[in-house]
Design a binder for these strands. Structure first.
Lengths: 204, 204
DNA sequence: GTGTACCGATACGGTCGAGTACCGGTACAC
DNA sequence: GTGTACCGGTACTCGACCGTATCGGTACAC
């Protein structure tokens, strides 16, 4: 599982305010995000997290002041931009890749977005963390892809369908489970891109 | 406030197991749905509903066994298909009307869908009520509109973009608040339909 | 070896909400 | 007038969970 890097002998640098290794912290984060995905934000309890990670509530409250702050930290730590690095030189192909990439992680980010839905309205820090960790990086990467396509002249600048592309991709990801009860997997999303997004942009 | 219809003299038919008038019941339903929209499912309390409608908790629990059952009843009662009755004879125009209609009610059904997000995962009755009341009727009406367009020959049967139309519309409705922080109003949705949905279907 | 600082466990206080029980008041049937 | 059945109000039980406090154990520094 863990590589040799896990038990490094060196004292890292000077000292650590916490004896928790970053790997251990990540266990907490994974656990809380997993539980949020499966049970919703309100149903997740600090006691539950402590139990499932075999740490104590004290440890959680020592590191993070409150439950929302803990969750916010977990969100920030799991930031992983899925659309980064897609650049095939063709907008159509880039969009297919992006759709496939979005489909791969289905049930992770999507589930979080769903589960945190309204909890986010009450705690501004949570809201901010969610946007920074999950929403904005992906949107920015996607707009980057589109901008390159425009720069290459594949689509005229200001094409009316352009601004809707990110919302559409996320929308499909989000709505299919609701409407059809199935996850929006890579195949489904790629087909969607080819059937709708590319034609709307005037691409082959 | 209340019209004369409220204190009807007739005994309605035979007898009523409850002395609550249907109007009174609807007040409860409106109150609980409103509170769910603004605070989320978990934050809504039976005490709060009782207070805001000036009835007593006893009354609520006499009529409905539990909180989820109460909410489910409220959902069922508020079923109002927004896309029903749209039939202009032109698919493009029907879709514009549907988009506008969807935009009108923004913050009602959409908010509920958002707020109930994960609460629905735990109570099957709630889940069922939500689907029956909000999801399926709208989808069915929308598919009806599309089917008429196909029957008129405006779009070839089996056009790949057809099956995505409902999800697209709902997806936009749902994602714009997340991505842009603004409600998806009628204007936005109509523009979306014209920029993406119609071109993808090969309509003018 | 000694001190320090953190971890895990557990127990506790405080709050809040679901659901129940009981009571007085009242509208309606006969 | 009397009975019945329901409403509104309040007080209550019970459980859950947040966040705090306390204590013993242990890894590491020096």
């Amino acid at each position: 599982m863990a590589s040799q890097a896990a038990d490094r002998p060196e004292p890292v640098a000077t000292s650590r305010r916490s004896k928790l290794t970053p790997e251990r912290e990540q266990e907490f984060f994974d656990a809380v995000l997993q539980q949020i995905r499966s049970c919703g934000y309100d149903a997740v309890t600090m006691e539950g997290i402590a139990a499932s990670t075999r740490c104590s509530k004290s440890t959680l409250y020592r590191q993070w002041k409150t439950k929302p702050q803990f969750v916010a930290a977990a969100l920030r730590s799991s930031s992983r931009v899925r659309f980064a690095g897609i650049d095939t030189g063709s907008l159509a192909e880039d969009l297919r890749r992006a759709a496939a990439a979005a489909g791969e992680g289905t049930g992770k980010d999507t589930g979080l977005l769903q589960a945190l839905g309204h909890a986010v309205m009450e705690d501004p820090e949570l809201k901010c963390a969610l946007r920074e960790a999950l929403v904005e990086p992906e949107i920015a990467a996607l707009r980057e892809i589109l901008a390159r396509g425009v720069a290459r002249g594949e689509v005229p600048a200001g094409h009316p369908a352009l601004e809707y592309v990110p919302a559409q991709l996320f929308g499909m990801l989000r709505m299919r489970p609701v409407l059809e009860g199935k996850q929006a997997d890579a195949e489904y999303l790629v087909t969607f891109v080819e059937a709708v997004v590319l034609p709307a942009l005037g691409l082959p």
